[in-house]
Amino acid sequence: MKFNDLDKKMRVYETAHDFCVLPGMYIVARIDGRGFTKLTKEAHDFEAPFDVRFRDMMVATVDHLMNSGFNIVYGYTQSDEISLLFHPDDNSFNRKERKLNSLLAGEASAKFSLMLGDIGAFDCRICQLPNPRLVVDYFRWRNEDAHRNALNAHCYWAMRKEGVDPETATARLSKVSIANKNEHLFQKGVNFNELPNWQKRGVGMYWEQYEKEALNPKTGETVTAMRKRLKVDYELPMKDKYSAFIETVILQQ
């Protein structure tokens, strides 16, 4: 059998289950760390429950993904997860889900592993959202999840540092209200409201325009040119203000 005939025959099995995101659908990629609890708490000496070094690695990973050839308009990270909003017109790899999933997971894993000096693996899943309202709801969901996780994490590690074993700490937290969790921390000298906002709300990344002086090579005159750069926002708003912020990101596209 000639190679071209064999290639055509076998490609069918490789692409039989190709699914493409339909035109007009918003694409959000969610990228999660695999086994990161063990990686960050046992294999490496990161501070619990939050470590600026780990945060900066995640931010650098988002930066890499947003500069890896895809048209991504907003990146968000909290804990060991990343969410990316694609421009509605992005047509990379004909919007094939398997290509988006494999490339984004691979790029994230490679970048993070190089910084960590160890293997840090990510998986990826694609969310297809039919309208801007659901895009807003998606990022509102992840923003509020960050707040919930931060409160739980600070309570959990406060108990762990007092000698409570993991199972008991988890069981106790499952029966405590949000108000009582805040009070528990306050009794330990921690005001949850005063903790850094990036711990409670995550970190957002988006493109901004700025002016830069340049030299006109023909006239030698100094001119002002508009450039684009990636902004890292550690002070994201919450709740309705965050929803309004995401709406602005969408409308600017």
Rank of each mutant, 00 (worst) to 15 (best):
217 P>N: 01
181 K>S: 15
244 A>P: 12
82 I>R: 02
38 K>Q: 11
121 A>E: 10
100 L>T: 09
133 R>Y: 13
183 E>D: 14
103 L>G: 09
202 G>H: 01
105 A>D: 03
228 K>F: 07
207 W>E: 05
10 M>G: 06
227 R>M: 01
179 A>Q: 00
11 R>H: 14
12 V>F: 13
149 N>Y: 04
6 L>R: 01
204 G>V: 15
33 G>E: 00
102 S>F: 08
146 A>D: 14
205 M>A: 08
107 E>L: 14
87 H>T: 05
34 R>D: 00
244 A>I: 11
124 C>S: 04
141 W>E: 04
66 M>R: 10
159 M>R: 11
39 L>F: 02
99 K>L: 00
174 S>V: 15
126 I>N: 04
21 V>D: 07
79 S>F: 07
207 W>H: 02
191 N>G: 03
153 A>V: 09
140 R>I: 03
205 M>N: 01
108 A>L: 07
57 M>N: 10
155 C>A: 08
97 E>F: 05
83 S>V: 12
202 G>F: 03
186 F>Q: 05
126 I>V: 00
214 A>D: 07
184 H>Y: 12
208 E>G: 10
78 Q>G: 14
235 E>V: 12
170 T>V: 10
205 M>K: 02
176 V>A: 06
124 C>P: 02
3 F>E: 09
79 S>G: 04
114 L>T: 04
112 F>N: 03
8 K>I: 12
58 M>W: 06
51 D>R: 11
163 G>I: 13
86 F>K: 13
47 E>S: 09
85 L>H: 00
130 P>T: 11
140 R>Y: 14
146 A>W: 10
124 C>G: 12
89 D>R: 10
37 T>M: 10
250 I>P: 00
84 L>M: 13
53 R>H: 11
199 Q>Y: 13
251 L>F: 12
34 R>K: 01
180 N>C: 02
230 L>N: 04
176 V>I: 07
161 K>F: 15
154 H>F: 12
198 W>K: 00
186 F>M: 09
251 L>D: 06
227 R>T: 03
5 D>C: 07
165 D>A: 15
91 N>K: 06
163 G>F: 15
42 E>Y: 14
217 P>V: 05
226 M>P: 12
111 K>D: 12
137 D>H: 05
219 T>G: 08
143 N>E: 07
195 L>A: 03
192 F>C: 13
112 F>L: 03
